[in-house]
Design a protein around this nucleic acid. Sequence first.
RNA 1: GCUGCUGUAGCUCAGUCGGUAGAGCAACUGAUUCGUAAUCAGUAGGUCGCCAGUUCGAUUCCGGCCAGCAGCACCA
Length: 644
Amino acid sequence: MPVLTLPDGSQRSFAQPVTVAEVAAAIGPGLAKSALAGRLDGRLVDTSHRIEADARLAIVTAKDAEGVEIIRHSTAHLLAHALKELMPEAQVTIGPVIDNGFYYDFACRPLTPEDLAAIEKRMGELAKKDFPVTREVWSRDQAVEFFKSIGERYKAELIEAIPAGEEVSLYREGDFIDLCRGPHVPSTGKLRHFKLMKVAGAYWRGDSRNEMLQRVYGTAWAKQEELDAYLHMLEEAEKRDHRKLGQQLGLFHFQEEAPGAVFWHPHGWRLFLDLIGYMRQRQEAAGYVEVNTPDVMDRALWEISGHWHNYRDHMFTTQTEDERVFALKPMNCPGGVALFKQGVKSYRDLPLRMAEFGKVHRYEPSGALHGLLRVRHFTQDDAHIFCTEEQMEEECRNVVALILDIYREFGFAQVRIKLSTRPEKRIGSDATWDKLEAALSNALDRMGMAYDRFPGEGAFYGPKLEFVLRDAIGRDWQCGTLQVDMNLPERFDIHYVAADNTHRRPVMLHRALFGSLERFAGILLEHYAGALPLWLAPVQAVVMNISAAQADYAETVAKKLREAGLRVDCDLRGEKINYKIREHSLLKRPYLVVVGDQEKAAGWVAVRSRDARDARGSPDLGQMSLAELIERLTLERAGKGVAV
RNA sequence: GCUGCUGUAGCUCAGUCGGUAGAGCAACUGAUUCGUAAUCAGUAGGUCGCCAGUUCGAUUCCGGCCAGCAGCACCA
């Protein structure tokens, strides 16, 4: 006689065991139709699940996040169903739900976009047939036997990994049957708003030593509008692609002779220099000194640091005539340590915060390269903080506070923190790792910061914090990092003289706030869709004349703006004003300053803003005095935001 | 690195079922001097990513390489 408690607190009792679907029907016909699954005492179950005892029950529909996940999961099965019908020789493997969609991996011949279209069409047909999706429970051995018998060896392998004697669930829709934990939608007719996105290779069990499978990605939603909105978001993201913007705005380029290396054009380099200048100022204020160390150093140094052992294959090396093997530095830390070793350091020198805008070189696998976001030669806003064990936690807190404040100034309000702990491949004792991991987690706890743990993901010499920021369209980017390290100090045998005149080992913090300057510049471009706020815009205003008669006045205006410290171009070409406005607007210049006879006579300027709108919603802000314009721009630049 | 796809003028792209290529924009020249997102006309511009092979003939077909794109793997 089950008594069921619904989410609103009301209770319903039934004379006999009931299914979730029957409960939904008892509540109302609308709910019966939209029910996708049930949440029974917190556990997701199919609508066909029979409830025998008292429980808390919620009917899951497409309005719930879980409902959408079930739709995605079931759509993955529908994909496998359709593909098996079209290609019976294909073998199925796994098909999980991911952000915004799902994928399914198959062992089959390489799929083409035409295949994808055909599969999608078949999925639509199968959905329309509204096959019931039914759950069956088999013994593990029976399931292994079955999948082997139909030639599904990947599936059989997966089930064999389940402990013997356990039962497994299978789901059947039409002629298709698949191993799955479930739950699934009650019938394929619930799957309506989906689209296959792309196909690509993926390794079996995610291991590059294994064979490559065909992975089909898809997206699925509860409503057509949501699917449309998602596709629209992807289009927007494409427009923000920093590689495209870099081309359009003339910021940088890449070419075949230098894979993974940036050719910075003047305007791009302006941004790069501004980022360094900003960081330099912030670091100086935070008590750092800046240094510079060699780019090419003897292999012996990298053997001491452990990089040679761990990353030799990813290092650029060079052999000179005298047979010495040098490496282009893949990290700045050994150089920093070498500087620390110069002279005798006292506890009074600590903490010693040593910053370096060092360019590092890493031979990244060719497939990893991606615009500015993943390059082989990049500049870190690196720093090494040498301190005592007692100072380490406070120094960590200082770094965290500095990072968060800087991200905020760049317009990133949402930042997530990841704590990565000791990896399998590491140097140093467990006792040391205990101390280091505690320093990071204590620092965060003391600051009341939330963070996620990633066991085994730390660097080989120490655990690390990683700072992940969320951009304007909700994408996450990993940027800053903070690592604590007692291992390199030991390997390089560095020490300081303590107050009691004994020699002690300092702790080393490695930190980078932007991470890679190149990457951060790329992220900024995507975040702002190329429309950099005034303080970062390579060209902040363009002065343009309407006709030749005002050329001299336009030059005077440009000169005065430059004297106020603004970066200003002057366009005196004999083109129509519409043409000039279009061109400079496409270049996303924040301000266009138009001067014609009226302005020249009155000594004024007409201002058009990229971001701001007047009361009528027009970007044309009308006439103002030059002093007013300078004040406006100076204020906006100091505020670091975008104009409104 | 792996799988698949792509590489034609400065940019965006069309084209050649094998007979050495075309548009728009940009550039250059001339005319136009114009009030808030493209004025008109003309000129010039390419060893069709690179190297081999098949062929009377390859940008097109085959193979190798390089680079890029998507995903996977990697990311000190």
